[in-house]
Design a binder for these strands. Structure first.
Length: 137
DNA sequence: GCCAACGTTGGC
DNA sequence: GCCAACGTTGGC
């Protein structure tokens, strides 16, 4: 099982939007970046991911679970783009901010800290455990 | 609102 | 296949 991080903006797709979808989940569409797409292509059902808000909030607010492996993105006819389906698993008790990640030396190698532009990224088991701890889950 | 970092496009 | 130009993202 692997760990990931999904980035969104509140104005596009908020954590509340994701929660509202319940166990049915929703496809993580709109990704137009090869690196991000390649990560989605190797995801497996049951993989977990952080739900991160960029721009204003800049924090991890929840945990999601992959419920469908990569399939064509329904928002485009361009066959290059695939996406997975995810459902909300749980909310963090305390959002973990980007600043907290940057200040924690154990997270200094995190992709989020070093390559802020990548919208879907891998998270190591160690990083996963640290952020869950900081988030109170 | 600015700007750095990065990705993509297209001419050669 | 290289690289300049351009567009986008996201932190500050």
């Amino acid at each position: 099982m692997a760990y990931w991080l999904f980035k969104s903006e509140v104005s596009t797709w908020s954590w509340e939007d994701q929660l509202a979808k319940g166990d049915a989940g929703e496809e993580w569409d709109g990704v137009r970046n090869y690196q991000a797409r390649n990560f989605m292509r190797v995801m497996e059902i049951g993989d977990l991911g952080f739900f991160y808000l960029s721009q204003k909030e800049k924090c991890v607010v929840g945990i999601v679970e992959v419920i469908a492996t990569a399939h064509p993105d329904s928002t485009t006819d361009d066959e290059r783009w695939d996406c997975v389906d995810i459902k909300a698993s749980k909310s963090l008790k305390t959002p973990v901010t980007l600043q907290m990640c940057k200040e924690d030396p154990r997270l200094s190698d995190m992709v989020l800290v070093n390559n802020s532009r990548l919208s879907v990224q891998p998270v190591t088991p160690a990083e996963w455990a640290i952020i869950c701890d900081l988030g109170g889950v």
